[in-house]
């Protein structure tokens, strides 16, 4: 594939320029979206049901092409690229796992993507085993994916996309059905990928999951971006969150109610320390 792989620092990995998208039935789902993403940035997209989040991320791996405006990924206009070309470097975990799973067994499901991208049988074997292992799926390897629990299906979808090691990982509602351990793993995975200079894009309604990660946040409502900035700036401003039907994380609410100047970024331990000082 001929994508500019030597992107200089500062050049965006993904850019949206005045992007509009109308669904075939005439619904306008994106109404002029502008943003760009730098290498190793972690981005979380939050917002109202029907705001256009899923529609937006489907443009990044070329599943959808803009009706108007331009989407570039790795410096190339996605209109010039097929979704097949892009998907090797842009992995997307769908919001609904049933749209992603069709093989006879969990193991075959993971093998499928790898074989599709032409990995040698040698590497394929190793990758499948480590994916099964990393996501605690070994016990399920020979089971039909359709018989897994909701959370197990989602976990499998994440495992199979990660197996081909994309440069941009898009997770549409990754915490659905995930218990505390899996959510913890997801956070670790996000940080690890970031340290490898990759990009993770999280589309989620789970503000409590997002807050400790402190990613860049984009809020969407009605086909438009209504806020774009740091977690602190965006999620502690109720003018922004209200417009996108988002609620502030618990620690932000608490900091506001207590009259602290800046919300605690993460673990309650820090909050505890401050409280002990303030209240003796």
């Amino acid at each position: 594939m001929q994508l500019n792989s030597n992107l200089k620092d500062g050049k965006p990995i993904v850019s949206f320029e005045d992007v509009f998208y109308s669904h075939p039935n005439g619904n306008v789902a994106l109404k002029g979206v502008n943003f760009s993403l730098r290498q190793s940035e972690v981005l979380a997209i939050l917002g109202s049901n029907g705001a256009g989040k899923t529609t937006l991320v489907r443009h990044i791996n070329g599943l959808l092409k803009p009706t108007r405006g331009k989407v570039s990924v790795f410096g190339e206009d996605t209109k010039q690229l097929s979704s097949a070309q892009l998907s090797r470097r842009v992995g997307i975990v769908f919001q609904n796992p049933n749209n992603q799973l069709f093989a006879q067994s969990v193991r075959k499901e993971i093998e499928f993507g790898l074989r599709n991208f032409g990995f040698s049988e040698d590497i394929l074997k190793k990758r499948v085993e480590s994916a099964l292992n990393d996501f605690s799926l070994l016990d399920y390897a020979d089971r039909p994916p359709m018989e897994l629990s909701g959370g197990e299906k989602k976990r499998l979808c994440i495992a199979l996309v990660l197996a081909w090691d994309p440069d941009i990982l898009i997770l549409d509602e990754p915490t659905v059905g995930q218990d505390s351990e899996q959510k913890e793993k997801l956070s670790e995975m996000t940080r690890l990928l970031q340290s490898q200079n990759k990009n993770v894009i999280l589309v989620t309604h789970d503000v409590e999951f997002v807050w400790p990660l402190q990613p860049r946040i984009i809020l969407m409502a009605n086909g438009l971006i209504v806020a774009d900035g740091t977690s602190q700036a965006v999620l502690s401003d109720s003018d922004f969150t209200n417009r996108a039907d988002v609620l502030a994380p618990q620690l932000v609410d608490f900091s506001k109610l207590m009259g602290f100047l800046k919300p605690f970024p993460s673990a309650p331990f820090e909050a505890e320390k401050i409280l002990r000082i303030e209240h003796g």
Binding site: D179, F254, F269
Partner: peptide, 27 residues
């Protein structure tokens, strides 16, 4: 048991506000 302890609950417990006094939300 795989259940995420809400942040406010964690904080409440560390401040020894437990049992009937355990706080479930920021308010």
């Amino acid at each position: 048991f795989g259940v995420t302890e809400p942040t406010i609950v964690k904080l409440s417990k560390r401040l020894s506000l437990e049992g009937e006094k355990l706080a479930l939300d920021a308010q």
